[in-house]
């Protein structure tokens, strides 16, 4: 039986498809027993779905740096 901390870690990794098969089995056994983690895991999955559904874009750190520099030189 794995601890709740361990279950959370696997759950987070699973959101990025980085959990191993064995880990996922351990997680699911834990979720059967632990109501709190099951609830959290459900919400976690929903967040992943939302993030995938929304058209999210972001600027890279490099882009932001040049932006800051340009702003600074303009002041």
């Amino acid at each position: 039986m794995i601890s709740c901390e361990k279950a959370q870690l696997i759950c987070d990794k699973a959101q990025y498809k980085e959990a191993s098969f064995l880990d996922k089995i351990k997680l699911h056994i834990h979720l059967l027993i632990c109501k709190t983690c099951a609830g959290h895991s459900k919400k976690n999955g929903r967040l992943t779905k939302l993030c995938n559904k929304a058209p999210l874009h972001s600027l890279s750190e490099g882009d932001k740096k040049t932006m800051k520099q340009k702003l600074h030189s303009d002041k």
Binding site: P55, L56, H57, S58, L59, K64, M67, K68, L71, K75
Partner: peptide, 19 residues
């Protein structure tokens, strides 16, 4: 507070503009 603009709002504005 222009010093935090890029960190705070760049992504938000970028999303708005890209769509």
């Amino acid at each position: 507070n222009p010093n935090i603009w890029v960190d705070q709002y760049a992504d938000y504005l970028f999303n708005y503009a890209v769509t």
